[in-house]
Design a protein around this nucleic acid. Structure first.
Lengths: 213, 213
DNA sequence: GACAGGATTGGTCAGTCGTCCAAATTGGGC
DNA sequence: GCCCAATTTGGACGACTGACCAATCCTGTC
């Protein structure tokens, strides 16, 4: 390998992480073997343990790698919305779009889909693996959004608001899983891979749902 | 074969199936071992393979056992709605309730929660395990509901309808996963285990979303 | 050119996995 | 009583698992 190639290519740590993310997303924690990850990354098995320790630590690192990107994009989107409406009264539609679009457009890349897949199944993984990682990554950003939604929907009591935001999260997360159910229901007329269309469809749906009497 | 023989045979098979359902729901396909299932069922390991063949087939059988109950309940709910509004014009709210409630209220029993857990994570299982089972169990009922929703929302074009039904499925499925996100968001004010409350909250949310301009 | 010190290697460990098999047990039909 | 088939058992197989170690390689520094 030439020096130029080496600088362009990802570092070994990054390559392992990216591969681990993809394999964990596809196979799950129990289903993914360290050997499979090592082979897919073109790396010796013992190198995984050298860089990341035990398998569960590699899993945590791989998950956080993807989750952090999404959280940052979402935080950025909220900041932009606040800059555009400095009085703090962000229109509901803009708020929903800021919350949903970073996630869904992130799903346009293979790595983004891997992040969603890991996220969707995280709480079913053994041990406290899910709890540990999930809360640390998302909570701050989510709470900021909850406050912003509460301001955009002043008439809604807080409990109902939380339930509806919960439903909202389910709606877009399920979409990103690409289960094939959409294609089956529409008899091929719709394509769940068309995430721009998905955003265009889901925003009015969620806005109306949040505003329900 | 006598009736007594049949009863004994069914009992063992059922005990294995019920246990397998619980263990698969908790650990996932890759995470659950055949030995763990056999031990939990108080049964010899080889007996699993004698009755159900490979692990893969046991998983299918265990899943379908629970899924069939839910599908039947959902089909029954649609039939009842049709009987109540014989002209075919079922109110949207009743239709949403008929679609969602059987699923969510089924989660009130331990076995029902196992079914929900397996169902929600089904497409994250390896191979086409999910695809195979899911389509065979749910498709007919789902298509009947699509037609009913189309009749209840005549102004909506079919593609947008399918997208919105897709979002609807995501919303209630995610709720049944019990990820702990609702509790975190509401700072403990809401309880995602309260499925009656969940139904009461989700129905107006979905009705408004489906009716969105 | 010798010297670190991190990075990387092949190889090995005990344990678990799913699957299979031959033998033992059971219980109804004759 | 015996027979036959379905059921149940303990045990074993090879493959694979995560983890680990000592040896080797590489890359800068003095």
């Amino acid at each position: 390998m030439s020096a130029a190639e080496a600088t362009v290519q990802l570092s070994v740590r990054e390559r392992i992480l990216a591969t681990a993310q993809a394999v964990f997303a596809e196979q799950g924690y129990a289903g993914a073997g360290t050997r499979a990850i090592a082979q897919a990354a073109g790396v010796n098995l013992a190198l995984l343990h050298y860089h990341f320790g035990a398998k569960r630590d590699l899993f945590k690192a791989a998950y956080q790698r993807g989750a952090q990107k999404v959280t940052e994009a979402r935080t950025r989107a909220l900041a932009e919305a606040r800059a555009r409406w400095p009085d703090g009264d962000i229109p509901l539609e803009a708020l929903v779009h800021a919350f949903v679009a970073p996630f869904m457009l992130n799903g346009q890349t293979e790595e983004g889909r891997a992040t969603m897949r890991m996220h969707a199944r995280l709480h079913t993984e053994p041990g406290q693996l899910g709890e540990e990682v999930l809360s640390t990554v998302y909570d701050e950003t989510t709470m900021a959004y909850v406050a912003a939604f509460q301001r955009a929907l002043p008439g809604l009591n807080r409990e109902t608001l939380c339930w509806r935001l919960y439903f909202m999260m389910g709606a877009y997360r399920y979409t990103l899983l690409r289960t094939g159910r959409l294609e089956a229901m529409s008899e091929g007329a719709c394509d769940s891979a068309d995430l721009e269309r998905a955003v265009a469809e889901i925003v009015p749906f969620l806005v109306a749902g949040l505003r329900a009497p």
